[in-house]
Computed example of a mutant assay.
Amino acid sequence: MIDVVLKKGKEKAVLHKHPWVFSGAIEKVKGKPANGEIVRLLNIKGEFMAYGFYNDQSRVALRLLEWDEQVTIDEAWWREKVGVAVAARSSILEEGVTDTCRLIFSESDYLPGLIVDKYADHLSLQILTSGMENIKPVIIDELQKLLNPASIFDRSDASSREHEGMQPSFGILAGSPPPELVEVVENGIRYGINIAEGQKSGFYCDQRDNRRILADYANGKTVLDCFSYTGGFTLNCFQNEAKSVTSVDSSALAIETLKSNLELNDFEQPDHRAIQSDVNKQLRKFREEGETFDIVVLDPPKYAPSRSALERASRAYKDLNRLGMLILKPGGLLATFSCSGAMDMTTFKQIIAWAALDAGKQVQFIHQFCQPGDHPVSATFPEGEYLKGLLCRVL
């Protein structure tokens, strides 16, 4: 096994079991490991620190796996990690209530670069690191043994693979190709999931708990669901008898899937509008036309993919939330989210305060949203906490 030596003074994060070592923290590499190869990390004195995946094309040159020198990272090690992660989700899955969730969440499940989502009897898999790409056959085999899925579909088409020197990977890995729409149930609501063409791995199961929490406020209310995608917040609000819901998304496929999801569920005569439009433009149009709502949901895509983009993203979040506040009825509720890991909750609250100031409004924070239990946050990897949200009363 090839040795990689850490620079003096860079030991703290490794000792605290943070799984990333950046290229700038490496003193030297004793050999030429292939990208994705497991290497041994030593301190400047030559003492063992950890084992990890190596990649000289990535800013994160080492993704650490194991801190005990006596442990062998072999096939059994990988199978055990997969089994532990899958078993931890058993309390989330309940027949007839929820049959979709995230089974494996990358570094937070100590499997860096591996994401697996369960959609009824089908699995959607993403591999984002070269090391995990090497282990793919073992991962697929263990998932088949544990779950016997109808299919395992590869959605490793994220642009982040380029940082690891990998090409996109897409298509069926095991079983039969999934149908165009896989029917799942979440919070007792039925959805058709397009695994092959949907965003991310097909569905945003990270908002499961937040959809249910917000729906508790929706009874008899008029709701605007922005960035509605396939209707998660829309459908949960109708389940709790919202008076009306307007759904806005720029994607024609998302809007059509949302409409078909409404048809899947037996909501009695829902008062629903589906608008395919840029959200910011549509919010300005509502403002110009004097249309207001009791509840506005803002669940935008990732505005800040890195810390370097945070300043620009902050301006975008502020303007979006200002527009949302301007079309709320007095005392209305704004449910606003950020899925940017670079955005912390303190900064997000400050942005909402700035937006309120610009809108001439007063804001009370009445609930903090977070990601659910199938998206755990490792105590040694706070970067895994990416989803945050606020329920605000706007006065």
Score class of each variant (00 low, 15 high):
I2G: 03
D3G: 09
L15N: 09
P19H: 00
W20N: 05
F22H: 13
A25Q: 12
A25S: 15
E27V: 14
K32A: 12
P33A: 11
N35A: 13
G36E: 03
K45R: 12
G46K: 05
G52A: 04
Q57G: 15
R63M: 02
L64P: 13
E66W: 07
D68I: 00
D68S: 08
I73W: 05
D74N: 12
W77M: 01
E80N: 09
V82Q: 10
R89L: 14
G96D: 04
R102C: 01
F105S: 11
I115W: 00
V116D: 01
D117A: 01
T129F: 01
E133C: 11
N134W: 10
I135N: 03
E142D: 10
L146H: 10
P149K: 03
S156P: 14
A158L: 08
Q167S: 14
S169Y: 09
I172W: 06
I172C: 14
A174Y: 06
A174V: 10
G175F: 08
S176Q: 15
P177R: 12
P178Y: 06
P179K: 07
E180P: 01
L181G: 02
L181E: 05
V185T: 08
N194E: 08
G198I: 01
Q199W: 01
K200L: 00
D206S: 00
I213T: 14
A215P: 15
N219C: 07
N219S: 11
F227Q: 00
G232I: 00
N236G: 05
F238H: 15
F238L: 15
F238Q: 10
Q239I: 11
N240V: 12
A242W: 10
S251F: 01
I255Y: 03
E256T: 01
L258K: 04
S260V: 01
N261W: 00
L262M: 15
H272M: 08
L283G: 15
R284M: 14
F286Y: 11
F286D: 08
R287G: 07
T292M: 05
I295C: 13
L298R: 03
D299L: 08
P305L: 12
S306A: 10
A309W: 08
E311C: 06
A313S: 04
A316R: 06
K318R: 15
L326E: 13
P330M: 02
L333W: 04
L333D: 04
L334E: 10
F337C: 13
F337Q: 03
S338I: 06
G341P: 05
Q350F: 14
I352P: 07
A353T: 14
W354S: 12
A355C: 10
G360D: 12
K361C: 13
F365E: 09
C370E: 12
P376E: 02
G384C: 06
L395H: 08
